[in-house]
Design a protein around this nucleic acid. Sequence first.
DNA 1: GTTGAGCGTT
Length: 270
Amino acid sequence: MAEVYIRVAEEENEEPMEIPSEDDGTVLLSTVAAQFPGACGLRFRSPVSQCMRGVRLVEGVLHAPENGWGNVVYVVNYPKDNKRKMDEIDASSAVKMKRGDMKTSDLIVLGLPWKTTEQDLKDYFSTFGEVIMVQVKRDAKTGNSKGFGFVRFTEYEAQEKVISQRHMIDGRWCDCKLPNSKVNMIHCFYLQQGPDEPLRSRKVFVGRCTEDMTTDDLRQFFMQYGEVTDVFIPKPFRAFAFVTFADDQVAQSLCGEDLIIKVHLSSIFL
DNA sequence: GTTGAGCGTT
């Protein structure tokens, strides 16, 4: 599919702005967010059903509806009641993504041979990029290696490459990972909450479902509120479903709402 | 003087 421009506006009846697609016909959410800070998705009015429909969003990539993007005006979705906060989050993450200057982290190196020294580590990892720190963890008394260590690169690209593969170091296969401490920090960043806060639910209960509702129906419907990461419908039919969003705030905002889905009325609870 | 999933004295 060739590059096209899709028409996007804050509201249905407002002057649309043309946003470029990628070579494969998809549109990046980051491209939309560059013009509409805080955007979390797109929706449009189906010419057939006259209902608003969500645009499929998977990991930041917006996918065209069945018959292509067409000439309809796409309307920007914002996280409900949370525009300001998302502005800040998106701005900071967008800057990091665009400039490619994501900060590197120490990486834990697991499975090192007992004999491996820090010089060995530096020599090995320097083939991936500039190394700014290596450590081999040792027993304080004996000085024996504990069989693991840490490494840090200057370039984020080198870090990604190193994490993505296994490493043969001095005759043993080793793994490089983000240390748990950092993984927790990253989780907190994406969940927009502190490490001590109780986990906020990203999943809503959808009551009064009808048997003709498919997971795709529910996904299409709820995408207008934010990125849907999972839809679960119990089998056999039990008249309810669970919909999980990428953003817990979207889930919170839908709590208590009554929504018309495929003509029927469903009630939303957490 | 050993070992083989894990998570960092400064």
